[in-house]
Design a protein around this nucleic acid. Sequence first.
DNA 1: GTGAAAGCGCTAACAC
DNA 2: GTGTTAGCGCTTTCAC
Lengths: 333, 333
Amino acid sequence: MAVTLKDVARLAGVSVKTVSNVVNGYAFVKPENRRRVEEALAATGYRPNLGARNLRRGRTGFLALMVPELNIPYFGELAGLVLKAAQKRGWSVLIEQTQGTRERERETLVSLGPHLVDGALVHPEALQAGDFHDAAGGIPLVMLGEHAVDVPIDRVAIDNVLAARTAVRHLAELGRRRIAAIGQNPARGTSEQRMAGYREALSEAGLSYVEELVAPAEKYHRAHGAAAMKALLDLPEPPDGVFCFNDLLAIGALRAVAERGLRVPHDVAIVGFDNNEESAFSLPALTTIAPDKAALAEAAIDLVCRRITGETDTPPQHVQTPFSLEVRESTRG
Amino acid sequence: MAVTLKDVARLAGVSVKTVSNVVNGYAFVKPENRRRVEEALAATGYRPNLGARNLRRGRTGFLALMVPELNIPYFGELAGLVLKAAQKRGWSVLIEQTQGTRERERETLVSLGPHLVDGALVHPEALQAGDFHDAAGGIPLVMLGEHAVDVPIDRVAIDNVLAARTAVRHLAELGRRRIAAIGQNPARGTSEQRMAGYREALSEAGLSYVEELVAPAEKYHRAHGAAAMKALLDLPEPPDGVFCFNDLLAIGALRAVAERGLRVPHDVAIVGFDNNEESAFSLPALTTIAPDKAALAEAAIDLVCRRITGETDTPPQHVQTPFSLEVRESTRG
DNA sequence: GTGAAAGCGCTAACAC
DNA sequence: GTGTTAGCGCTTTCAC
């Protein structure tokens, strides 16, 4: 059986209170007693029972991270950074996967709560505004990434409209005139914003918006990017530049182009979004929008922690984290 | 404040015991009472306080998963599957990242314990046998993947020697005669096993083991694969086939070959290991050893759960899960 | 079948 | 400064 406070107290010949004081770093303990307690602590190898401590404190000591799927590189990378940021501050993180379905997202939101975690970072894919009502039993929630729904909770994200515009402007500056977009999807929050940036950049460059150059994508996986690209290449007048709404779509597009015997960027230049680690090694390496994921993770953790402690109790805020355009072979050359 | 059992009991006009019985699905409750409790439950939106329940039960309700880094695709994918398998059985999973350093692995192992989690799946990279002594406060531990250290704890893994042999035999059957290996690293458990499989396949094919064709890799990332491949291509007699100890190394190797203006598989055929999702979309798509990751996750979760419940109390066992060779463009020509 | 009460390990009043 | 004690919310004997 595990060593309890009581065991240590008995061994040291003091009360549990004194042991508790030492364990919790309370300053005013008689040196003599402190020494004896510390000895007993070492001798028994005591480790506090977090469950009991938190039950008493009304805390759980855990944070939750809700993401669609960890096998999607963006989320794997983000989760890694969130874990790191949380660990630095002494929090443990529970990861919940939703597969990006509204139902699972809603369930997860409800299952989260004060009894399980003290706060949560959520990256919803399909949640509607109403789903947030009274969700998670009132614990602090921070939303990751931009979303179509407008709910009054904290958010941390990059400026998706500006990022998309930057990507498309880059293609335009390369002299591309028929610039396509892959990833339109009304169900996704970011799609709307990236579409807006796409259109802004087009008009900025004096290019007109062409319906047939906008390829929808049901999901943002590699295979969907390949399929969408194939369709674009089948057009009577195929595009000479493509902005993909994420790197996975772009990787798929790269393959579709290669399978047609065409060359990137010679025949068609491609830009992605997310800067997955794999994108620096694709052939050709992918030009992409690189969100500062570490900054995003830090900001989100920081915010949720401050909400939990009550350090911050301003109205919900929207934190913007930086991004950059990473120019690589797929638009160079 | 959250609704407690007592609140529900008061509202329903019964004792906490009865409510507890209903909540826990105890069969023998007077229908009348059951109805009233269920109404009160619904009216209050009661959710049990897991912390309290587990404190009482002497459980935490959590499992831990220790991995090097989630941004490495293999671990991202594996973690996703572990989470899924755990969720099916009603467990929450705490993920701990170690960056693959022995110190962090040791710390993590110690910090895990009965007060935090009820059991753990660990994928160590650098741990030594002695580090396991009395680790994790005696909770059930299941090791993921093969390792050099021989400690008496449960393990779930594929047969790495056989898998490596299969990969190299495939290259030999293609007629390749100078088959290189990338990834030798004495500090890594699996390296030894994959080297063994490599040698077995060579001698099986009547090829001799050539020292210079074995390229070490400090880490198993893409950049290291590229560097190792460059060195191999600089050899007076470069290889015509390469077995990389994981897909990331292989992806790096692909790039190194392309940068030299050579072609895969025409000039050199390449086989990887892990079957990361990205490997089906690289150019060319990568032939690779595909461990059944879902089976691995399921087996590991199953085992740790059975240890926790005491359902299984046999000596530590070694479970082997299946793998296959996924033949793609990088060896098909 | 159901209620009363003890107690899981810990912290925080409150006395001394 | 330190000990005693009352719970945090839950499960679980043990009576009834």
